[in-house]
Design a protein around this nucleic acid. Structure first.
Lengths: 195, 195
DNA sequence: GACCGTAGCACTAACAGTTAGCTTTTTGAA
DNA sequence: TTCAAAAAGCTAACTGTTAGTGCTACGGTC
């Protein structure tokens, strides 16, 4: 019983990381569309099939860490202090995530994403998944019980806020503008429940 | 100068329609994944390149009429009576569209879409475009002036409502539940503008 | 320490969507 | 009739992705 995950899993993770790093480097050097899967595989010194055993698609190479995003969102819901209101907690988390991805160091990557229709499309589908996960977290939260539809709606609104902020000229300002709207929408679901 | 759209354009439209009809028929008969582009082209008696000159992708064959959707939404905004409030107008239009696509006659098509990840993903990207178009219509409406961010947020919320309703067990009930939330979000933008 | 089942990886070859390059037909107008 | 442009066609490729198959190294067990 190895507390540090066994050598096999470490090797696997290393291979995965090597592929992701190589891919990102090549994409940034030559442009996403100009780099083929075969190029990435060759440069990372793995077979094409190996690459696809670690990543479901070419786009997934770019959004390698998207599960962190998902985790942080659900954590913001399920891990908040008792009686701490939901929407402000989500607001803080989204704000942190927006700051994170509009940081200068991340700029080239996001410029690449914005420049590729395939990547933008993929990002949307990733966000849809995040919205579903977030909806499940909200629906499962005992604090204020809400209907399935309402929690899915709020979840989508929150993800929308993130998407809008990322594209806005003033990302933090966009969060400040959209979240009061979400707060109001949220209040409606609570009001109808009290009635 | 032919006032009735010339023969050339009619023929082109006819070819386009023949391709779309053939594609949909084959997809429903054999399943979306089991039908290749070459099958559709052969059955419609056109070259593959011709097919792609009419449709940008295989998925686009299924969402052939999606511009109607877009048109109806912008029409609901720009074509409403003076002083008619925005959100109820959008609510009515979304309700009509939801009814339209949950009608029995359309059921097989939507079942096919729900059964194919590629189609679901494509539908999301189509919706994103619709949200952008709707946002532009809202932002361009003189009646209640709103910021670019607020109009984009509302537009996304409205599209979200449609998406949620389409997937919900009780589509019309979902519209009834989500639109009050949107209305509240909308009021926030108006309140901050009056302040 | 030897043994074995499994997981990771490799290789080839192919499939399917999509596009480029170029030719032929059809159309609308001079 | 003649001509330019649009539409349609054909061939051949490129690119992401997968199936099939086998080899190798690891991890747990006796």
């Amino acid at each position: 019983m190895t507390v540090p995950p066994g050598r096999r899993e470490r090797k696997k993770a290393a291979t995965r990381q090597r592929i992701a790093d190589t891919a990102l480097r090549l994409f940034l050097e030559r442009g996403y569309d100009a780099v083929g899967i075969r190029d990435v595989a060759a440069e990372a010194d793995v077979a094409v099939t190996t690459l696809f055993s670690h990543f479901a698609s070419k786009e997934a190479l770019v959004f390698e860490r998207d599960e962190d995003f998902e985790q942080r969102l659900t954590q913001a819901v399920t891990g908040r202090a008792p009686h701490e209101p939901l929407i402000p907690a989500l607001r803080e988390e989204i704000l942190a995530l927006v700051r994170h991805c509009t940081a200068d160091s991340a700029a080239p990557v996001w410029r690449m994403i914005d420049g590729s229709p395939a990547l933008r499309k993929y990002e949307e589908s990733v966000r849809l998944r995040h919205a579903e996960t977030l909806a499940a977290a909200i629906a499962g939260d005992p604090e204020p019980p809400v209907s399935a539809t309402a929690s899915r709606a709020i979840a989508r609104f929150v993800i929308d806020a993130y998407a809008l902020a990322r594209e806005a000229a003033d990302p933090e300002g966009a969060v400040d503008e959209v979240f009061p709207m979400i707060e109001a929408a949220w209040e409606v679901t609570r009001a109808s429940r009290r009635a």
